[in-house]
Amino acid sequence: MSESAVPGRYFDGRTAAGHDVEAVFSADGVSIRGQGHEIFWPAKRLRIAARDEHEIRLSNVREGEARLVIPARAAGVIGAAMPELLSGAPERRRMTALVIALIAAAAAVAGGVFFGAPAASGPLAERTPKELEIQMGENVAGQINLILKPCGADADLAPLSAAISAMAKTGGAGFPIRFQIVDTPIPNAFALPGGQVMTTRGLIEATSEDPEAFFAVMAHELGHVRARDSLKAIYRNAGAGVVLDIVTGGSGAAQQAVIIAGQLNQLRHTRKQEAAADEAAYEILLASGLDPAALARAFDLILGALPDDGRDEDMPAWASSHPDTAERIKKAKARAAPGGTPPITGDDWKRISSACSAE
């Protein structure tokens, strides 16, 4: 490896496979070499897709979901070659321009309705560029991870992530899925904007003996991803300032407000979205060769895992926001169809079931 190169992993965005490469940075861009790849990404097309204390994920605006992942310790090399990239200034300017354009679209769509009103949330979501929604989802996920820490080794979670991504493709989710488990005992799962899907250690444990029930919950969340429900919730519950804060990754209370705002707003929207996500789950499960009635078993397992004295308070939003959970269970059972084998081996599921407890 040359002195100016840094080690990295290249993902082409078409498969889940990562490739060991070396990345050579210059003022003009980055050369990516290794395992049959010889690629050059110009500096003007580079973006910071995500960054934490361990790694930096770079993207190319012309390369879709392709990513170059390098160690965080290599920040000095990038900074020496392209100081503006690490400062985030180009990204902030680009995202601010997108938000301004989005606010203009909101005015056209909503007329006299103020930005963020429920009536405008659907049309606004439809007009939002997917690239912007993905960025919003990454920033919201980063804020959640300050409170709910991810757990499970990447190698252990890879088969599950691949299986969920395959379901998403089958179900036409429309976004690349970024999956993670967060370490909390409450059985829950939620979809964030742009294909971010989180599940809790509690849900993994509750469904440890029934992986098909777990995949039923994932199918429900993929229904939310496909409908862009989380983005609609942000527009419904937030003003332009909060949206800009989320897009640019700003700190403060804005993102936390968005996370809890859904339960404080008009419940009829949430009920409608949850019912539609149930229907999407049946469709995705059937298309994936799984039994739609597994969603009913998931409800039962989650209810059984909650404390006897805290069911109303601790019930996951996707299960509690509907006025009649029993009716949802009944509908799911009525959709029963011969199921196949869950898209993950027993050994992989066993490792995943204990992934968080092993840490």
Rank of each mutant, 00 (worst) to 15 (best):
T207A: 09
A168Q: 09
A238G: 15
L192F: 09
M218R: 07
A238E: 14
R236H: 08
L222K: 01
T248I: 13
A189D: 04
A240E: 10
L222Q: 02
A173R: 00
A213W: 01
E212F: 01
P193D: 11
G223A: 02
G171S: 03
F179W: 13
A206S: 12
F190T: 09
E212V: 08
G241V: 05
V243P: 00
A213P: 02
A216Q: 00
G241F: 05
E209W: 05
L244M: 13
G223M: 01
E221T: 04
P211M: 07
S230M: 07
T200M: 07
G239R: 13
A240R: 07
G223S: 03
Q180R: 07
G223T: 00
Q180T: 15
A213Y: 01
K232G: 13
F190N: 03
A191P: 10
S208Q: 13
G172I: 08
V182P: 00
K169F: 01
A227I: 05
A238T: 13
G194D: 03
F214N: 01
D210E: 14
G239I: 11
F215V: 02
P187V: 14
R201D: 11
F190V: 11
S208T: 10
A206Q: 10
T200N: 09
T200K: 08
A219S: 07
M167Q: 08
M218Y: 08
A168D: 07
G249I: 06
H220M: 04
I181S: 01
L192K: 04
V182S: 04
G174L: 06
P187Q: 15
T184V: 13
I186T: 12
T184M: 14
A240C: 10
T200P: 00
V182L: 14
L192G: 11
T207M: 11
E209H: 10
G252F: 06
M198Y: 09
L203A: 13
I246V: 15
P185I: 08
G171L: 02
T248Q: 13
T170C: 06
A227H: 06
G202W: 05
G171N: 01
G172Q: 09
S208Y: 03
T207R: 02
Y235F: 15
V225H: 01
D229Y: 04
R236K: 04
S230K: 02
G174V: 02
R201A: 13
M198E: 12
E205T: 12
P187G: 15
G249W: 02
G241A: 09
I186G: 08
T170M: 03
K169S: 04
T170V: 12
Q180G: 04
E221H: 07
G241Y: 04
A238S: 15
F214L: 15
I186M: 13
M198R: 12
A238W: 02
I181T: 07
